[in-house]
Design a protein around this nucleic acid. Structure first.
Length: 577
DNA sequence: TAAATGATTGTTAAT
DNA sequence: ATTAACAATCATTTA
């Protein structure tokens, strides 16, 4: 039984022309596409200075065509495994990259759990959250040459269309990002305005809990066993935030412990909460996948390469291990963040579907590019109605992913964020990345400056928009106009804005101090009030319809609580919770 | 640098 | 190769 795989040539040196001086990551000669899973910021011009057998999805040297195995070949490789024995290099580098039409264990799962019947499903323990094989230890069965055998489905196996929403949640935990979406049919009553829980009542409650720590307090009084908060989640979130936070603050090196937590929270980089999504009561805490581990190792080596390069000559100057991040002057050499992956788009779902259909029904051999081209044309010709199921599932996955991401971000400690931002700043400085710093979602938001309040004021009032912006619709040009107006204003006219800005600045400072003192104590997630815009001789305050007197400031205790109130956005209110 | 805005544009993930 | 999501960009002032 052969592995079914695709050979994907990884092109190097590809760079699209850019008008603006954006950093073209490909200038750095880094292979693009799926070969790279980590942030572009870790790249360096020394990338090809030495063979890299460690890079995720990198099999063989950069000079060889890459094998992109649907089964994620690298997941078989234990750290340090000598790839030359894998048998993969027996394959001559051939331009005839092919999609093996035959079913094999490898072709079964990567295309989500939707396309094969229960009989051939890999066992949960053999799959990581992305539906990739891994084992907790390096048994012979985990060798690249002897993948875990999974019986092939009969040739007559009937393809189950994606829009077949039959009992998707009955699948096991073999979830890939794609199957995550596949597992989430939309109730017929789907409506964008419905609440998440209304829409996804079929989604196991534990998912909701898992991604929403504070919701644990609201869990049903009599949850079904399957709906109970996973133990790990309870452990994680029942602990008062400030405890973890301060622990992290005082820990010599908070990250390893932190990462362990995240390993539980998001067992794999690919499909966090997969067990929750699957609706299975996986109470056991699973360490994060081999994949993630080897990934981390590769990053370390990456960093080593960079460091050597930077330290000048080719002499291998021995230095302390990377993870020794004790010197605060040295920003982290790599990002420690493992946010949940993107949800599959409608197109991706379709493509996955399409590939599987091909495999099931014909012996045609296609490379990925051809397949994408063909499927792309078909997808384009689909009617809106035909696309709808895909779109809905993508949307469902997106919403879940968004919650995962929020939960993930909220779970980061200020130290984590500081560290990441130090890394990003360093990357920016080195011209390797333009990623802006991430902001602590738990921290109070910076208040608007007086001028920005003025901008808000204009935008909220159609009359002012007309007066000041005229017919200009481009925000950037509006900025210019507004700035001109601002400069032309008298102190008196500005005064209300300045006053309001001053006030909010004070509130912000208080909130910030509070946060920095003990982020996490009850009262976490402080919001400050932005909603009352000052009156001005030229710009009298406008009363906002949804703003009632009773909703006034509740910041009398100085804790900044109670002002989690409506805030203007796009001319209406967006509530912050 | 981030705070708001939203059209535009470049980049990346996913298969 | 294709698609769409994502992220940066722009303009502005203030801290």
């Amino acid at each position: 039984m052969g592995l079914s795989r695709i050979r994907v040539p990884i092109r190097r040196g590809l760079c699209l022309p850019v008008k603006r001086p954006l950093p073209c990551t490909t200038f750095l000669r880094r292979p693009m596409s799926a070969a790279i899973k980590q942030t572009s910021s870790t790249m360096s011009s020394s990338f090809f200075d030495q063979p890299r057998y460690d890079q995720h999805h990198f099999i063989g040297s950069p000079e060889e065509p890459m094998l992109f195995d649907f089964d994620d070949y690298t997941s078989f490789i234990a750290p340090g495994y000598d790839d030359s024995h894998s048998g993969m290099d027996d394959m001559p580098p051939s331009p005839a990259y092919e999609l093996a039409p035959a079913y094999s264990h490898a072709s079964a799962d990567p295309f989500s759990s939707m396309g094969y019947n229960e009989d051939v499903k890999p066992q949960p323990h053999q799959l990581d959250a992305a539906g990739l094989y891994w084992q907790s230890d390096l048994s012979p069965a985990a060798s690249p040459t002897s993948p875990i055998p999974i019986p092939s489905p009969p040739a007559t196996h009937e393809f189950i269309a994606y829009n077949d929403h039959s009992s998707p949640l009955s699948f096991d935990s073999s979830f890939s990002p794609t199957s995550l979406a596949a597992a989430l049919p939309l109730p017929s009553s789907f409506s964008p305005s419905a609440s998440f829980e209304e829409q996804y009542s079929a989604v196991p409650r534990q998912l909701m809990d898992a991604v929403s720590p504070r919701d644990t307090t609201n869990t049903d009084a009599t949850p079904t066993p399957a709906a109970q908060v996973p133990q790990w989640a309870a452990q994680l979130w029942d602990t008062p935030r400030h405890t973890r936070s301060s622990a992290a603050r005082h820990a010599h090196s908070p990250l390893p412990a932190r990462r362990e937590s995240m390993g539980q929270l998001f067992p794999s980089t690919s499909a966090p909460n997969s067990a929750a999504v699957a609706g299975l009561g996986h109470n056991t805490i699973r360490a994060y996948s081999k994949r993630a581990e080897s990934f981390g190792a590769s990053e370390d080596r990456d960093a080593t390469v960079r460091r050597r390069k930077r330290s000048g000559a080719g002499v291998a100057t021995e230095e302390a291990p990377d993870d020794e991040q004790t010197h605060d002057n040295n920003p982290p050499l790599k990002s420690m963040l493992r946010p949940p992956k993107l949800a599959p788009s409608a197109w991706q779902l379709y493509f996955t579907d399409w590939i599987q259909r091909q495999q099931a029904s014909s012996n045609r051999k296609l490379n990925v590019a051809q397949a994408a081209k063909e499927a792309g044309a078909e997808y384009a010709s689909l009617s809106e109605e035909e696309k709808e199921p895909y779109k809905q599932r993508s949307q469902a996955a997106k919403e879940i992913r968004e919650r995962e991401l929020n939960a993930y971000l909220r779970s980061l400690t200020p130290e984590d964020i500081k560290r990441e931002n130090a890394f990003r700043s360093a990357q920016r400085k080195a011209g390797k990345s333009r990623k802006s710093n991430i902001k602590d979602p738990n921290a109070p938001k910076k208040p608007l400056s007086a001028y920005f309040m003025f901008l808000q004021r204009i935008r909220a009032d159609p009359g002012l928009v007309r007066d000041i912006f005229g017919d200009e619709t481009e925000t950037t040009k509006q900025s210019v106009l507004a700035a001109a107006k601002w400069r032309s204003m008298t102190d008196d006219e500005r005064k209300p804005f300045l006053a309001q800005a001053e006030q909010e600045k004070m509130e912000y400072e208080a909130a910030r101090r509070l946060y920095e003192d003990g982020a996490g104590s009850p009262g976490y997630g402080t919001n400050i009030n932005f909603s009352i815009l000052p009156g001005s001789p030229a710009f009298p305050a406008i009363k906002l319809e949804s703003e009632s007197e009773s909703e006034g400031f509740a910041t009398d205790d100085g804790r900044g609580q109670g002002s989690s109130r409506a805030r203007r956005s796009h001319g209406h209110f967006r509530s912050l919770s």
